[in-house]
Simulated assay, not measured.
Amino acid sequence: MSSRRKKSFIKRFSIFILLYLTSTFLIIPNISAFFGRVKINDNYRLKAHNFITKLCNRDYVTPELQNVLTDVSLRVNKEYPKLKVIYLDANFPFFDGFPLLPHLSHNDGKKIDLSFIYKDNQGNLTNSKPTNSGYGIFEEPKKHEISKTKKCKENGNWQYDFTKYFTFDNSHKNLKLSEKATKTLIQKILMNNNVSKLFIEPHLKTRMGLKDRRIRFHGCQAVRHDDHIHFQIK
């Protein structure tokens, strides 16, 4: 590449980056309301796990879901003042039906993934997560527990655990799931009557003693949910 072409490329790329960042952080948050979406309001109780989520505009929800998130984060904060509710993928800012790949249903502003709550080697609860993406380190079923992963893959659903390839760094993989705190988080979510469904793997539902009818199995056509919580509103 000649020096002139290189300079031209750098100039055009720089302009693209400037326009993209301006749109992402200044323009889109102000026009998303016309499509029934709002950018999630991060604060000391509620936070995106990864800046990429915000950079790629994957942090939009309906105002009703924003209200649920605010309610959940307040309830969790009262019980665990040092913890934040950490969200992963939500929805794009525009157009119902536009897929948020690789998710099957994050397309109407009413769905969101939350991270489990973990503890460090000293047993202290932490806001850190095992992977940079928030996905891919699974809470495997024990020998006496039902393994939907095994059954789904035996039935030809090869994609069921493919998120293990999308951890994007798992330097904190030694963190352990806090079943108690994660159960509390799920219970706080389900306290809101506007919540219609919540997905986690069946073996974790059983292990945590969760009985709410809104806790469902998401189906073998999706990906496994023993690395995060998915919930949605009516």
Rank of each mutant, 00 (worst) to 15 (best):
D108H: 14
L114W: 05
G123V: 12
P102M: 05
L114A: 05
S115Q: 05
N107A: 13
P99L: 11
F92E: 01
L101E: 06
F116D: 01
S115P: 01
F116K: 00
F95T: 13
D120P: 08
F98L: 15
P93W: 04
P99Q: 12
F94K: 04
L114I: 08
S105F: 11
G109P: 03
G97H: 09
H103S: 13
G109Q: 04
G109K: 08
I112Q: 05
Y118H: 09
I117P: 01
D113K: 04
F92Q: 03
L101Q: 09
P102H: 06
H106Q: 12
S105N: 12
I112S: 09
L104G: 00
F94P: 10
I117R: 02
P93R: 06
K110Y: 08
S105G: 10
G123Q: 10
D96R: 13
K110S: 12
L101V: 13
G109H: 04
D96P: 09
L101C: 06
S115F: 02
L114K: 03
N107Y: 07
L104Q: 08
P93Y: 07
F92Y: 14
F116T: 00
N121T: 11
N121Q: 14
H106M: 11
P102D: 05
N107H: 13
K119M: 11
S105R: 14
L114T: 05
L104W: 00
D113Q: 05
Q122W: 04
S115Y: 00
P102N: 03
K111V: 13
N107G: 08
Y118T: 01
D108E: 09
I112M: 10
I117D: 01
D108W: 09
P99G: 09
I112P: 06
L101T: 11
P93H: 06
Q122M: 10
N107F: 10
F116H: 00
K110P: 06
G123P: 07
F95C: 13
D96H: 14
D108Y: 06
S115W: 02
P99M: 09
D108P: 09
F95K: 14
F95A: 15
